Simulated scan of single mutants.
Amino acid sequence: MPRISPADDYLTVLNLFTTDTPEKQDTLLQEMGKIVDSAAYEGWISSTVHAGQESPGTANFIQWRSGEDLEKRYAGEEFRHRTLPVFQEITTSIRLLQSRIVHTHRHPSQGNTTEIAPKRDDYTVIEIFKVAEGDQDELVAELGEGRNWLVDVPGYRSHSVFKGLRARFLDGPFAVVYSQWAGKDEYDAHRTQPEPEKPEARLKSEARIDALKTESDWNGYRVVHTRAAGE
């Protein structure tokens, strides 16, 4: 089962695809599943496929040994002439985001490791934050340590913060938050909590994040398939 841990020092790649119909999402999942099940790339560690819940789309959470290994994959004939063209035909947007894990936090009930797998049945939220040059580190810190108040939110399981390194089809610095929840209802209640009911720590954190980010978006997901090297 893949895990998220700064100690592993993997390159994390989030391949995010959006589309316009549930049927196209199903096609995306089938194509991604084929790639994951046949993966034997040098330096590839694991891939975990997510199905969009709020809007049609998919996410592939991929761990690599290094950026050099990933670039070999991108430079290959299969990726350039089959994989990418197939996805471009059935998507409305593509973002291939390379990042480094800098912070993980869990509710005490979740143990000592952040794990991702279909059997966990998490409602997963992936948030993308764009940020101005020079503000990335401060934003990453606020999204990480600045959100430790989440431990008191009903349904919260974990959140992990990634610093963006480079990307295809996304311009400028960015950060990613990958969070796990007990269910969609719990996350929706958290997201729509009225301002007067929010604790002071949350109000302060959200105000700073809003001041630092230049743009953000999110989607909810369910993990549907995972595979690691050697399996």
Rank of each mutant, 00 (worst) to 15 (best):
P6K: 07
D8G: 06
D8I: 01
D9I: 00
L11Y: 04
V13G: 00
L14F: 13
N15V: 11
N15R: 08
T21I: 03
T21R: 12
P22T: 05
P22F: 02
P22Y: 03
E23A: 15
Q25E: 15
Q25I: 04
E31T: 08
G33D: 05
G33L: 03
G33C: 04
K34V: 12
I35H: 10
V36G: 00
D37V: 00
G43N: 10
S46D: 12
S47N: 13
H50V: 00
A51L: 02
G52Y: 03
G52R: 02
Q53N: 07
E54A: 13
E54K: 11
A59N: 11
N60I: 07
F61I: 14
F61L: 15
F61C: 04
I62C: 07
I62H: 04
S66Q: 04
E68Y: 08
L70A: 08
E71K: 14
E71I: 11
K72P: 01
K72C: 04
H81M: 07
R82A: 14
T83L: 14
T83D: 11
L84N: 09
P85V: 12
P85R: 11
P85I: 10
P85Q: 11
V86D: 14
V86W: 06
Q88W: 05
I90L: 11
S93D: 07
S93K: 03
I94E: 11
L97S: 06
Q98A: 14
Q98K: 15
Q98F: 03
Q98W: 01
S99I: 03
S99N: 07
R100S: 15
H103S: 12
T104R: 06
H105P: 02
G111F: 11
N112Q: 13
N112A: 14
N112Y: 06
T113E: 15
T114V: 15
E115W: 03
A117H: 10
P118D: 02
P118F: 04
P118R: 05
R120F: 06
D121K: 02
D122P: 01
Y123M: 06
Y123F: 15
T124F: 00
V125P: 06
F129A: 03
K130D: 14
V131C: 10
G134Y: 02
D135H: 12
D135K: 14
A141H: 13
L143I: 05
G146L: 10
N148C: 08
N148M: 13
W149C: 11
W149P: 06
V151W: 04
P154K: 03
P154Q: 08
Y156T: 12
V161A: 13
V161I: 15
F162H: 15
G164S: 07
L165M: 15
L165F: 04
R166T: 14
R166I: 04
A167T: 12
F169M: 10
L170W: 03
L170Y: 08
G172W: 07
P173L: 09
A175I: 02
V176S: 06
S179F: 00
Q180Y: 01
W181Y: 09
W181A: 09
W181H: 10
R191C: 01
Q193L: 15
P194L: 06
P196R: 08
E197R: 09
E200N: 09
K204H: 09
S205G: 05
S205L: 04
E206K: 07
R208Q: 11
L212K: 04
T214S: 14
S216A: 12
S216V: 01
W218V: 02
N219E: 10
Y221R: 04
R222C: 00
V223P: 01
V224K: 05
V224W: 00
H225Q: 15
